[in-house]
Nucleic acid binder design. Structure first.
Lengths: 146, 146
DNA sequence: CTGTTAGCGTTGACATCTCAACACTAGGAA
DNA sequence: TTCCTAGTGTTGAGATGTCAACGCTAACAG
């Protein structure tokens, strides 16, 4: 192992293996959690991400604020909102300049209210219940740093 | 907090917040790592995932083995291989029954060889270098359990 | 031989993500 | 005024992911 940091990962594994393991865990957990929670309410993962962010903000946000809060590209937000507006989960209206404010509809609010306890339960069952308190502490500290 | 496991996450945060933080970290790291490594070689992330798995197996695998190794759906493998075969990264041929064996081409082998050091460096810079030895140990143990 | 079952892969439709190009508004400089 | 620039959002094309339906081959039972 010629690089200075290689030893941290052990002599038999490369960083790319650590990366693949991380990707695999994310994929498995995502599939299980969404299957348990979102599908029961007829919501996809991106639906849920948008609705949760709007709900946390009180029900309305500008698209650029939504993009910043989620770390999403502007076009990704735009496409997703177009699909969600078609299903009456949100409404959009210009609010000064080129800015657009997104607002939860009654349907959207009902959907996020219904799915939240399911999502909490799914995350517990598939993820946090399988971790010790010390592991959760470590993960949270790592998440906050990234 | 009325549930037995709620206390593990602290009184001010729900499991769904822990889940969102995990998703966010995965998304940010994925974007950075792929931007650094794969794009430099003209490979997408799914390209790279397939090529790495084939390379590790010696250059050839049946589609069902590939699906099992990656935890992917059969149709996802099929669609992705169709795109990759079109770019001459792999070849496919029936090998008994309905089974199909996927083989790395010279181009595919060259691509994965070229990108691996870039990928290792990107994972180190954006991920493992920002973790302590103890954190890496904890994460690896969590990954193995999931 | 005929039908059945199981395993493996493909296809088409649709949802999602990314990128480049474009359009609109506001504000300031010439 | 006219031009330029920054900020914001939209659109279309192509790549990717997911789901349901289908086709093919082998093995086996009748």
């Amino acid at each position: 192992m010629s690089t200075p940091n290689g030893a941290k990962l052990g002599d038999t594994s490369e960083p790319v293996d650590f990366w693949c393991a991380f990707k695999r865990v994310h994929e498995v957990l995502r599939t299980r959690v969404i299957a348990d929670a979102a599908e029961a309410a007829g919501l996809s993962e991106p639906d849920l991400t948008i609705l949760a962010s709007l709900s946390r903000a009180g029900g309305a946000l500008r698209q650029s604020e939504l993009a910043a809060a989620l770390g999403w590209d502007r076009t990704r937000i735009s496409h997703q909102l177009t699909r969600m507006a078609k299903r009456a989960l949100v409404t959009r209206e210009r609010t000064g300049g080129a800015a657009v404010t997104v607002t939860l509809t009654a349907d959207g609010r009902a959907a996020v209210t219904a799915v939240r306890p399911l999502l909490d339960a799914a995350v517990r069952r598939h993820f946090t219940d399988r971790l010790s308190a010390r592991e959760i502490e470590t993960l949270r500290s790592v998440f906050d740093r990234m």
